[in-house]
Design a protein around this nucleic acid. Structure first.
Length: 615
RNA sequence: GGUCCGGUAGCUCAGCUGGAUAGAGCAACAGCCUUCUAAGCUGUGGGUCUCGGGUUCGAAUCCCGACCGGAUCACCA
């Protein structure tokens, strides 16, 4: 709640008390932004008081309005009552003060402490720590659009929580071992002829991905041969020589076979080099990376401990299980009968190591909604193993990216590759900017590339982040992502326009946006509705940041940034900044423009979107 | 079948802790560049907020029940 809402709430409460003799609850003071078709800035809904007042809503609104205005010492300039709605017009001087305060705040929209109860009471001094896990790729194929959504959400959530006062540690768990990587290794050994990223010019992750696909192709061939020979499909899948060999390779890996380990290490390096490039380009990063190959043994030993303590049980075939029927779930396998570990085992080990490494107050997993069951189970298992953080873990569950013909499937080749997609976005941005010779004349090739990079990626990131994370979203590869309307480039463009005006102002008259501050007086200045709307929008930024943090939703920031950009463009169209003859007004508009740019930049940074100075 | 999530304009999506005549963008159509960047601005058309009940001054929003779509319930990850 910002200071205006607090002031209005308190005025409204005392008005209700004075007029009707009742103490109003906070929840009864319902404030909302006044709809544009009515006069006013903020509206009090008076229906909650109609009953006690025993008067018509319109009259109640008018009475409260009269009283609030009288007591408000100039805060409320005027009011009007429409049915049960009391529309308050706040004085211009208040808004000017707000603008100055925003301008003075370097970290506007950032909070010192999270808006949650501090569990151990030490948060006044120490920041609370949130660990955010995201990305978590398998090392057998390149990143695709599904990973892109994951990475963008994870990175943005980390930025948003940091702005909300958390100390954030971004982490990644790389699934670098298991049958999937053995498949790629085997196919490379059999069909690769020693191909390397250097020899073929392929990015390492793409090269490995090609062999993963190759494995699947050859494997299917073998299954077909076996079933043609009369074998049933289930048996064929199990008995196919390639699968047998892959499993043998996995056993050798677990037994530390030097040759297998060496090959594994080499091929993983190729993949990491490829991932690093994609991450860098995407603009995401990690503070700490865990590898499954280092955590799965830890998980095994935790499971053994749980077995000893009676939390889990062993079946006759040697496999280890957790009975979750009391929690309304099923029984869950933790170790296979051959003693090898499963996904869950590894996640237990990783969690343990993380909590050893960091004083984590909140653990967040950015993982698709298809794994909701998994995290429900993980939470219970960690709790059962005696880890205090088990119950508290957050599965930030987001929806799938779907193509017009359904889900993406790596093995079926119906994926949108992350690198290709970024290429395409930059090309499109480059193409569009070719028409902008008037504004982009005289820039170097390198500058043009940099603008295309920022704008192309901005379009992609905004396109993905503006959708409510919980919902599935549709991506149609046949239609290119827009650069007009409610898009990243629209907001970047608004920013570039402001920067252009500010540059011109400095070069023409030496007046920067902030420099105009001293000449803006607090009184006697009457605001244009467009100016006022912009200032009011600026005051809403902190609550947008709060809400985005509470709801884990970058989309909230997108919506806010879009609304702010819309307000500015409307202002920009109607009112001139540099040609305004009145010095006071000009100074105010410069100040306003500079702060809109500041907030747009800040908001987009929370989304991981960079701003071009011109475009 | 159990559990979870979703269903809003032709399309992609906001709005969902109850408030005024349900909003954007795209697509379509009509305007606005001699003037701070037209990736912009203004306007027109487009809706049974899936359906049916309930709660109340008031429901797209909350509750119940259908219907439709998705996810999940592996010795996969």
């Amino acid at each position: 709640m910002n200071s205006l809402e607090q002031q209005i709430t308190s005025l409204a409460k005392s008005a209700v008390k004075a007029l009707y003799g009742v103490e109003a609850e906070d929840s009864q003071i319902q404030l909302q932004k006044t709809r544009p078709e009515f006069e006013g800035n903020i509206t009090l809904v008076v229906f909650p008081f109609v009953k006690t007042a025993r008067k018509a809503p319109q009259q109640v609104a008018a009475e409260i309005g009269e009283k609030m205005m009288a007591d408000g010492s100039g805060l409320i300039a005027k009011y009007n009552a429409v049915q049960g709605f009391l529309n308050l017009t706040i004085s211009d001087s208040f808004w000017v003060e707000q603008l100055k305060a925003i301008n003075a705040d370097e970290h506007y929209g950032r909070f010192k402490h999270p808006n949650v109860k501090c569990p151990n009471g030490k948060c006044e001094n120490d920041q609370m720590l949130m660990m955010v896990e995201y990305s978590s790729p398998n090392t057998n194929k390149p990143l695709h659009l599904g990973h892109v959504r994951n990475n963008l959400l994870g990175y943005s959530i980390a930025q948003i929580q940091e702005a909300n006062g958390w100390k954030v540690v971004k982490t990644n768990i790389v699934n670098d071992r298991g049958i999937h990587i053995c498949k790629s290794m085997l196919a490379w050994l059999k069909f690769g002829n020693g191909e390397t990223p250097e020899s073929s010019g392929k990015k390492g992750d793409h090269l490995i991905g090609d062999y993963y696909v190759r494995f699947d192709k050859e494997y299917k061939k073998q299954i077909a041969e076996l079933t043609a020979g009369g074998m049933d499909e289930e048996t064929a899948k199990r008995e196919a020589p390639l699968m047998q060999e892959a499993q043998e390779m996995l056993r050798k890996w677990e037994a530390n076979d030097p040759e297998v380990r060496a090959l594994w290490a080499k091929m993983n390096e190729w993949v990491y080099a490829g991932f690093d490039e994609t991450y860098r380009r995407m603009g995401v990063s990690f503070d700490k990376i865990y590898y499954e190959s280092n955590t799965y043994l830890e998980g095994k030993s935790e499971v053994e401990k749980g077995l000893a303590s009676g939390a889990f049980y062993r079946r006759e075939d040697g496999s280890v299980w957790a009975d979750l029927t009391k929690d309304g779930l099923d029984e869950k396998l933790l170790l296979r009968s051959d003693g090898t570990s499963v996904y869950m085992t590894q996640d237990i080990g990783t969690a343990k190591l993380r909590f050893q490494d960091y004083p984590i107050d909140k653990m967040v997993y950015v993982v698709g909604n298809e794994q909701e069951y998994h995290f429900k189970v993980l939470s219970i298992l960690l709790d059962r193993l005696g880890f205090p953080f088990g119950k508290e873990l957050v599965h930030f569950s987001y929806g799938m990216v779907e193509l017009p013909n359904g889900k993406m499937k790596s093995r079926e080749g119906t994926v949108v590759d992350a690198d290709d997609l970024m290429d395409k976005m930059e090309e499109d941005a480059r193409e569009i900017s070719k028409d902008k010779v008037n504004t982009l004349q005289g820039i170097t090739e390198a500058e043009a590339n940099e603008i295309a990079r920022k704008v192309g990626l901005g379009a992609l990131k905004y396109f993905i982040l503006k959708v409510d994370p919980r919902k599935n979203m549709l991506f149609n590869p046949a239609e290119s992502i827009d650069f007009n309307g409610n898009t990243g480039p629209f907001i970047q463009y608004t920013y570039a326009r402001i920067r252009s005006v500010l540059r011109k102002s400095v070069s023409d008259s030496g007046l920067s946006g902030e420099a105009g501050l001293s000449s803006v007086s607090d009184s006697g200045l009457s605001l244009d509705p467009k100016e006022l709307a912009l200032i009011q929008r600026l005051t809403e930024y902190p609550s947008a940041v709060r809400m985005a943090g509470e709801e884990f939703s970058p989309a909230v920031i997108c919506n806010y940034a879009y609304a702010l950009a819309c307000d500015f463009n409307s202002f920009y169209h109607d009112l001139s900044i540099l040609n305004e003859p009145d010095g006071q007004k000009k100074a105010l508009r410069l100040l306003l423009a500079a702060n809109v740019a500041k907030v747009l930049r800040s908001a987009m940074a929370l989304l991981g979107i960079e701003m071009p100075e011109r475009m």
